[in-house]
Simulated assay, not measured.
Amino acid sequence: MGKIIVTGASGQFGNAAAKQLLEIVPAEDLVFLSRTPEKLAEFAETGAHIRCADFDDPASLPAAMEGGERMLLISTARVGTRVGQHTNAARAAAAAGVRQIAYTSIINCDRPDNPAIVKNDHLATEQAIRATGVEYTFLRDNQYSEAIALAMAIPALQMGVKPDNCGQGRVGFVSRDDCVNVAVGVLTQEGHGNHAYPVTGPEAISIPEAMAMVSQMAGKPIEVQHVDDEGMFAYFDSLGVPRHASDIVPDGPIPWSSDDMVTFGTAIRAGFMDEVSDCVERITGKTPRTLRSVFEQYQGAWPV
């Protein structure tokens, strides 16, 4: 049997997937890739194969992909330029004989009317993977619960207000843990080739409802201030957030752009994230985590 490859194994998602795979797959059948393989020392000791792979350097990829049968391609963080990276990885995998590529995409990226610009990179990557002729499994994740529990809840509690352009749009928030579980499932089970799965939590909740839950759990008030898209841009401008991906300073203090965030909110408001599926339970056999359970996990990081 060929090996299972995990790209970006030094990142949060990849690290969690690698650890889980080591529990069910012999270490010698696992290949963990990173641009910084020195960060994978903990895995080298298990007997897994640690390889350097730089998606910006296609010449580095044939050796990295050698012997692989299935690959988890984890989306890189470079919004706007990552499609080229993903395409290089997919083509190299196909050339190396990999027969299945599972890719961490986003929910409803195939809807042409979806206004979230983040969908553009994911859809283009899905198309690049399809073009290789390799079996694909698209893991179209909804918004991570952890993003709400940390990146949204903490400043909202600190300021007591949360400017928001999502309206009453609901989101099937999903824990990253469940997304990792699904990814491991499709890599270690049969029958997932040429499928696109909407990966969601068990319920759809609006941002105001989520902030009310945070407020109640923390015992501190949060006022959700409903603003339009221009108001949301103004808020991010006041924080010094660059408007476009092309304006992001490499290795700068803010690695994301406001047009990404604002259009994501537009998509939520328009109902594109209002989806709940049974994919987590069907693939993993486990009930997906609720948003409240993730809040409880990270509540200790909230300001008191």
Rank of each mutant, 00 (worst) to 15 (best):
K3L: 04
G14W: 05
N15L: 08
A18C: 06
A18F: 03
Q20V: 03
L22Y: 08
E23K: 12
P26H: 01
E28Q: 14
D29W: 01
P37M: 14
E38K: 12
K39F: 08
T46D: 10
G47R: 09
I50N: 01
D56W: 01
S60G: 05
S60Y: 03
M65S: 06
E66C: 00
L72I: 07
T81A: 12
N88R: 08
N88Q: 09
N108R: 09
C109A: 15
C109N: 14
R111D: 15
N114Y: 07
P115L: 01
T132K: 02
F138N: 00
N142F: 03
A147N: 14
M152S: 11
D164V: 06
G169P: 04
R176I: 15
D177W: 08
D178M: 01
C179V: 15
V180N: 03
V186R: 11
V186C: 08
H192I: 07
Q216M: 09
A218Y: 09
P221Q: 05
V227A: 10
A234N: 05
S238R: 07
L239I: 12
P250F: 13
W256A: 10
T266D: 14
I268S: 03
I268P: 00
R269I: 02
S277K: 06
V280T: 07
R282Y: 02
I283E: 00
L291N: 02
